[in-house]
Design a binder for these strands. Structure first.
Length: 466
RNA sequence: GGUGCCAUCGCCAAGCGGUAAGGCCGCAGCCUGCAAAGCUGCUAUCCCCGGUUCAAAUCCGGGUGGCACCUCCA
């Protein structure tokens, strides 16, 4: 397996700390609002990583956190009058539900910031004790970036100290503009506060990942975990800061490999709230099945920017449709073994830094060749069984193709409508028998107007939502 | 102002020095009562200009255009 390490800026061979195992930590969402397409893409990217490593027989442990204390959540508390817990449990539940709809495998560990206060405060205390952090008037604790000679080695950024140009917050008392908060002291009117040896307050954003990784993973003398991942925007400052504090607190590097997924854009621009062009996952899921969204969002290599638009989504759907049409031809039917060559080619593609484009091309070839075989010999049992197994493998490795093919093509059709369709098709079959083609065509037109496409096959007339 | 990334057929998208994968769309054909589906065939020399090399979409230099990070952000 090779992966692109965004710190080394090149593809490298994945050689885990512990042979045969892979520890992965992905930065999860801050739960103050519904997930957007960017959250989906990030989760989808790392889901592909996890599935590929598992198919390669690695024992994978995936941790993805929920940031459930932070300024934006506090703002939400003030706006809504709800409690922190009400807000965070609501959005965590929604996040999990939506990720499940995208066929994302659940994380093995789901740490929450509020459940890791002790781990954080102990790490902060160690940093203060060894002189890597300092407390300023008012109680905030800052990391002293000047004490970490390796600061900058993750993002390769040398923050511009000229504050007139950089956009780093200027805070009174900070020794250095790039120093960042480990602990924010509670103001008098703030009710969200945790006790710590250095006063009442709440953790800074970066410290949670470092502390949680330390808490949940054993690591080695050199690294805490194998892979640390997240969106491209997290490389700096988030991951740089995590790496710095972990390095100074533990004496070794945080992660052996760093992976970052590209952005989802709308009309060629980054999707973000400030631009007013963010797209909630829930809205996309209301219009399209999770599997279709998954297929579309995963159809572009994870490191590239992804320009979301409905036209491309529909083109991607048609590609998925072809897989399901093939599945229709072999359903119902049992499975034999996956075609060795197919399995190997798919794994080979995914093992090369998750080259999904090659993987999809391999699938297209398999679909075409199976269709060709079935055209030549519709009763080829061996081919049918092998194809069933092949599609099962696709579902295992890439997370699509697992639905019932008939249901797939009838997604979103109400039962009453289904009845009506079946009835029309029955009438058309009668008309065809009577060679009344005008009547048969009229019924087909009626179905077309309903958005239903029909196809006459040896097994009778099949229909799809068009 | 600093630092990166990207630019391949109408659209999406692989390619990582050896002579352009795949999908969508389109066209022609087979099949079909007609369709649809499926199958077969057809459709690019890689933003521009230099350079290195026997050989470059792939490496180097210079342009042009787009995007991102340096502020919360997946």
């Amino acid at each position: 397996m090779t992966i692109f390490d965004s710190v080394k800026k090149q593809k490298v061979l994945f050689e885990p700390i512990k042979k045969g195992e892979a520890s992965i930590y992905v930065c999860g969402p801050t739960v103050y609002d519904d997930a957007h397409l960017g959250h989906a893409r990030s989760a989808l990217s790392f889901d592909l990583l996890v599935r590929t490593l598992r198919a390669l027989r690695y024992k994978v442990t995936l941790a993805k956190n929920f940031t459930d204390v932070d300024d934006k959540i506090i703002k939400k508390i003030r706006e809504t009058g709800k409690t922190l817990e009400e807000i965070t449990t609501h959005y965590i539940a929604r996040y999990k539900d939506e990720m499940e709809q995208l066929h994302i495998l659940p994380s093995d560990i789901e740490p929450k910031a509020t459940e890791s206060i002790e781990a954080m405060s102990s790490m902060i205390q160690r940093l203060i004790g060894s002189g890597y952090a300092y407390q300023i008037e008012g109680g905030d604790v800052y990391f002293d970036s000047s004490r970490d000679s390796a600061y900058g080695s993750i993002s390769h950024k040398v923050p511009d100290d000229d504050e007139s140009r950089s956009r780093i917050d200027h805070v009174e008392g900070k020794k250095n503009p790039k120093d960042f908060a480990l602990w924010k002291a509670a103001k008098a009117d703030e009710e969200i506060a945790f006790e710590s040896p250095f006063g009442s307050g709440r953790p800074g954003w970066h410290i949670e990942c470092s502390a949680m990784i330390e808490k949940h993973f054993e690591g080695s003398d050199e690294y805490s975990i194998d892979i640390h991942g997240g969106g491209a925007d997290l490389l700096f400052p988030h991951h740089e800061n995590e790496a710095a504090q972990s390095r100074c607190a533990s004496g070794h590097e945080l992660a052996k490999y760093w992976m970052h997924n590209g952005f989802v854009q709308i009309d060629g621009e980054k999707m973000s709230k400030s631009l007013g062009n963010s797209f909630f996952l829930k809205d996309a899921l209301a219009a399209y099945d999770g599997e279709i969204l998954r297929f579309y969002l995963n159809s572009v290599h994870y490191r590239n920017d992804f320009n979301f638009n409905e036209e491309d989504l529909l083109a991607a759907k048609k590609r998925l449709d072809k897989l399901y049409r093939l599945k229709k031809r072999i359903t119902p039917g049992g499975a034999s073994a996956v075609k060795k060559e197919f399995r190997q080619k798919l794994l080979e593609a995914m093992s090369d830094d998750l080259n999904i484009s090659i993987a999809l091309a391999v699938i297209d070839e398999m679909v075409a060749s199976a269709n060709e075989g079935l055209d030549a010999d519709p009763k080829n049992k061996g081919l049918k069984k092998e194809t069933v197994a092949n599609i099962e493998f696709i579902d295992e490795l890439l997370g699509f193709g697992g639905m019932d093919p008939f249901e797939y093509f009838q997604l979103g059709i109400e039962p009453e409508v289904k009845e009506k369709i079946e009835e029309l098709i029955a009438r058309r079959t009668e008309a065809k028998k009577a060679k009344d083609f005008a009547a048969a065509d009229a019924i087909r037109e009626e179905l077309t107007a309903m958005g239903i496409a029909i196809m006459d096959t040896a097994e009778g007339t099949l229909w799809e939502k068009s």
